[in-house]
C-alpha cells in the first residue's frame, strides 16, 4: 500500500465520521485563520515605533466577551450533538448483525465464527452485512481498532465489550491493537478481509467443517456436567436454561436483570453474584476451569436454547446454523 494522507472509507460509519471531521476541520480552520490573521495584522499595524510609546488603556468590552463566549459555545454544542449521534450509531448494533466472538490475549486476536471456523489475527467477513463483535481478554486490556472502519473498542479482561461495523468495500484492511499491552504490542496486528457474500460463503464452507460454536458449547456443557443440576425440564436444583437468554430474571435479592451475554458469563464464573429467586447459591464457580473461549461457547449454547431471542442478536436463526439439541 502506498503513501496516503487520508484513510480509506470501508464501512457505513466511515463517511459519517469523516463528514463530522470535515465540519470540525472547517471550524478549526476558520478560528485558526481568524486568530493568526488578527495577530499578524495587529503586530504589524501597531508595531512599536518608539520605546516611549504609551498606548491608551482599554479595559475590555462586555458585549465582546459575551459574543466570543456564546458563539464558540453554540458551535461546540453542534459538535457535541453531532458527535454523540455518530457515537450512538457506532455503539448500537442492528438486530440482524452477524455475531463473532473475539478473545484477545498477549499478543494475538482469536476470532470465532458462529458457524464454527476459528481464525487467528485474520477475520473474514461478508460485504454489506452488519457484524457484531463480542469481545473479552484473557490477560491485559487490548483494543480492537480497524482504521478503515473508523471503529475502535477496548477489550477488557473480566467483562464483555461489543462493537459493530458494516463493511462497504471489499478488500484487506488493517486490524490494530490500539491499547498498549506489553512487549509485542505493535505485533498484535492482523487483517480484516471483506469478501463478496458468495466468496464468503465459499470461504466458510472451505474451512474445516467443525462443529458450530453452540455445538462446542453443548459439548462443554456436557463435559462439565452442568445438566446434572440445570435439567431441561426445570426439575433440577438449578433453573432450566431454555428460553433464558433475553428474558428478565428475578433475583433472590428482589432485583431483576436481563439475561444478556454478560449476565450468563458472570453466572458461570461468579455464580453467587446474582442468585435466581427461589434457588439456593449451590453452584460452584467455573473460574479457572473454562477458558474465555469456552465461556463464549457456553454462552452461545445457552443463547441457542432460546427459540426466539428477544434481544441483542438473532444471528443464529438467520444463519440457520444452530438448532436445539
Amino acid at each position: 500500500m502506498g503513501f496516503r494522507l487520508f484513510p480509506e472509507q470501508a464501512s457505513t460509519l466511515a463517511p459519517q465520521v469523516d463528514h463530522l471531521l470535515f465540519f470540525l476541520l472547517a471550524a478549526a480552520a476558520f478560528f485558526t485563520v481568524a486568530i493568526f490573521g488578527a495577530i499578524f495584522y495587529f503586530a504589524i499595524r501597531y508595531r512599536r515605533r518608539s520605546d516611549r510609546e504609551l498606548p491608551k488603556a482599554i479595559h475590555g468590552s462586555v458585549p465582546l466577551e459575551i459574543l466570543w463566549s456564546v458563539i464558540p459555545f453554540g458551535l461546540t454544542m453542534v459538535m457535541f450533538t453531532w458527535g454523540a449521534s455518530v457515537y450512538f450509531t457506532g455503539r448500537s448494533a442492528p438486530a440482524d448483525a452477524i455475531q463473532i466472538d473475539v478473545v484477545a490475549k498477549q499478543w494475538m486476536w482469536k476470532l470465532q465464527h458462529m458457524e464454527g471456523p476459528r481464525e487467528i489475527n485474520e477475520l473474514h467477513i461478508p460485504l454489506g452485512r452488519p457484524i457484531k463483535l463480542t469481545m473479552t481478554s484473557e490477560d491485559v486490556i487490548h483494543s480492537f481498532f480497524v482504521p478503515a472502519f473508523r471503529t475502535k473498542q477496548d477489550v477488557v479482561p473480566g467483562s464483555y465489550s461489543t462493537t459493530w461495523f458494516q463493511p462497504t468495500k471489499t478488500g484487506k484492511y488493517h486490524l490494530f491493537c490500539a491499547e498498549y499491552c506489553g512487549d509485542r504490542h505493535s505485533g498484535m496486528t492482523g487483517w480484516i478481509y471483506v469478501m463478496q457474500p458468495e466468496d464468503y460463503a465459499a470461504w466458510l464452507s472451505g474451512e474445516t467443517p467443525g462443529a458450530t460454536l453452540a455445538e462446542n458449547g453443548r459439548k462443554l456443557f456436557q463435559d462439565l456436567a452442568c445438566a446434572n443440576c440445570h435439567k431441561p425440564d426445570g426439575s433440577g436444583r438449578c433453573p432450566a436454561l431454555a428460553g433464558l437468554f433475553g428474558s428478565t430474571v428475578s433475583l433472590a435479592d428482589g432485583t431483576a436483570v436481563t439475561a444478556d451475554e454478560a449476565y450468563i458469563r458472570e453466572s458461570i464464573l461468579r455464580p453467587a453474584a446474582k442468585v435466581v429467586a427461589g434457588y439456593q447459591p449451590l453452584m460452584p464457580t467455573f473460574q479457572g476451569q473454562v477458558t474465555e473461549e469456552g465461556v463464549l461457547q457456553l454462552v452461545e449454547y445457552i443463547k441457542s436454547l432460546s427459540p426466539e431471542p428477544k434481544a441483542p442478536s438473532q444471528s443464529r436463526d438467520r444463519q440457520g446454523a444452530v438448532r436445539n439439541p
Binding site: L24, F31, T32, F80, G83, Y87, P147, T151, K152
Partner: peptide, 21 residues
Amino acid sequence: TIGGLTGLFVACLGIDVHVTD
C-alpha cells in the same frame, strides 16, 4: 490554538473513537 482546536476533535465522541490511542 492548534492544540486547543484539535482538543475539540478528541472531545467529540464520534471522532474520538477513531483517533484515540
